[in-house]
Design a protein around this nucleic acid. Structure first.
Length: 492
RNA sequence: GUCCCCAUCGUCCAGCGGUUAGGACGCCGGCCUUUCAAGCCGGUAACACGGGUUCGAUUCCCGUUGGGGACGCCA
């Protein structure tokens, strides 16, 4: 069987956004699934807009997501001669022709057509330019573009799309499209096809925004005598108002970079992205490892209908699609602890809360703490925000915790120091010991254990939520607990 | 406007002629009572409409409506 070869050809004109990342991911998945190759090709022929900064941003994004490629990055601009050569061949074969119509007059005709509510389509005026006239105008230095000569007659272009099925477009619907600009530079429609052929691409997996130029490229392949790759046009990702997502309209949330900054695990985010327009055919949604997804991935699982990226701007609770947050949480909760620890460390480092001892003498403690906390966290940043009381002595006493749990009973002013004294003395300071101590004190005091438990949680973490109190006490250790319990009196 | 594509809960998906139309997120409620932004349990909520085909349509066909995409000497 022929080797599967796919490609991801970003144009370096921005950052890596969700839609592109999804395209890259599906291509990567497909290549891995079939033991094929993924080619990264930078389509930088739009010199006006291409930038190196953008190229780097895109590559960084791919690397962060763990999408690696087998060949490249190639660069479209390195093959200009080849693109021009193909165009020359087409002209020589009479399958393309020189068009001397100027952009200005075409624009005018286009505008006129639009005014009448019609669509302008090039009428083939220059098809009839004689060889003599052509030479004359060439000698005169008249500017020209190269146009592909779409077959006349009642024929049509047909291709079978892996996700959309058979698509047929009649020749009449396709104008004689430009393949080389008047400045001599080839256009995407040509370059892209030439590059795909040279790179021996077997499957073109791209967004549905490309379906309309597929017939044109099919015509190009046929005219050049090249075998057709398989086409798979994946659905697009829209915003809740059904508009294509873009940085301009939606801001940073559509950039992959944003997710790295906001506590997403690379693969947790990739897992979410994969689900936007694809399903394994069952109800499974969480794929903790790349291998698991690779195994079940098929092009047939791609959805035909566009997917809405459910982001509500300005929602304080959900900074992005709630499902993205949930899936990330599933990964944090269930991934191998050893894989999570470095991510938790990075989050703390970024917040300036990291202590080198946690990678040395206290490595065991750090792991245990991460393991304890991850059960209720969804984002890596939670370790530095919600987790602050566990890693630092400088944390806020939440208003809610003070009011609800510390000021619940004025007597707590006496109880908390009493508890501190108890905990200072018990031996050993473990789960059983601390629990016996707290419950014992409550009993002697004649109060519900919950009163002391919730007050103690508020005292040592400043929060109303968190792990079970005795887990917290043991993780924090005797000294911190005693000190915080005593300090809490000041808040009552 | 023209061409192409699409159409199941608010959102993401399952379904591929006969199902009480399933799961997930979100939302609501309950349990746990050592809290919850944790966990468990439950609830809410969908086949766009109209014609066919068929014993039987969410499923197949046609149309309508709705949505999206493309219509550049951008990629």
């Amino acid at each position: 069987m022929e080797e599967v070869r796919v490609r991801f050809p970003p144009s370096p004109t921005g950052y890596l956004h969700i839609g592109s990342a999804r395209t890259a991911l599906y291509n990567w998945l497909f290549a891995r699934k079939h033991g094929g190759k993924l080619v990264l090709r930078i389509e930088d022929t739009d010199t006006e807009r291409s930038t190196e900064v953008s190229e780097k941003a895109i590559i960084d994004g791919l690397e962060w997501l763990g999408i690696d490629w087998d060949e490249g990055p190639y660069r479209q601009s390195d093959h200009l001669d080849e693109h021009k050569g193909s165009s020359g061949r087409l002209v020589a074969d009479g399958k393309a022709y020189l068009c001397f119509c100027t952009k200005e007059e075409l624009d005018e005709r286009r505008k006129a057509a639009e005014a009448k509510g019609e669509m302008f389509r090039y009428d083939g005026t220059c098809r009839s330019v004689s060889i003599e006239e052509r030479e004359k105008r060439l000698m005169a230095g008249d500017p020209f573009v190269v146009r592909f000569k779409v077959p006349d007659g009642g024929g049509s272009v047909v291709f079978d799309d892996v996700v959309l099925g058979r698509i047929e477009v009649s020749h009449e619907e396709i104008e004689d499209f430009v393949i080389v600009r008047s400045n001599g530079l080839p256009l995407y429609i040509l370059s892209n096809a030439v590059d795909d052929h040279r790179d021996r691409i077997t499957h073109v997996i791209r967004g549905q925004d490309h379906v309309t130029n597929t017939p044109k490229q099919v015509l190009l392949y046929e005219a050049l005598g090249w075998p057709l790759p398989r086409f798979a046009h994946m659905s697009l990702t829209l915003d809740p108002k059904k508009a294509k997502i873009s940085k301009r309209r939606h801001g940073e949330v559509v950039a992959v970079e944003w997710y790295r900054e906001h506590g997403f695990l690379p693969w947790g985010f990739a897992n979410f992205i994969a689900l936007l327009g694809w399903s394994g055919g069952d109800d499974r949604e969480v794929y903790l490892s790349r291998e698991e997804l690779v195994q079940v991935f098929t092009l047939e699982g791609l959805t035909r209908a566009n997917a809405v990226f459910n982001y509500r701007k300005g929602d304080p609770k959900f900074i992005t699609d709630p499902k993205a947050i949930h899936i990330n949480g599933e990964h944090i909760k269930n991934m191998p602890l050893g894989e999570l620890v470095p991510h938790a460390r990075a989050a703390l480092e970024k917040a300036g809360m990291w202590d080198d001892a946690w990678a040395g003498a206290k490595a065991g403690w750090f792991e245990k703490t991460v393991d304890l906390l991850r059960q209720r966290y969804n984002l890596l940043t939670d370790f530095a925000t919600l987790g602050r009381p566990y890693f630092s002595d400088h944390f806020e006493m939440e208003d809610k915790a003070v009011k609800k749990n510390l000021r619940k009973d004025a007597a707590l002013e006496q109880y908390l120091p009493m508890l501190a004294d108890e905990l200072a003395a018990i031996e050993p300071f473990d789960l059983e010991g601390t629990e016996a101590s707290v419950r014992g004190l409550a009993e002697r005091l004649g109060v519900k254990a919950g009163l002391l438990i919730n007050a103690a949680r508020a005292a040592v973490t400043g929060q109303t939520v968190g792990p079970g109190l005795f887990d917290i006490l043991v993780i924090l250790g005797r000294e911190k607990c005693v000190v915080r319990l005593r300090n809490a009196v000041g808040f009552i």
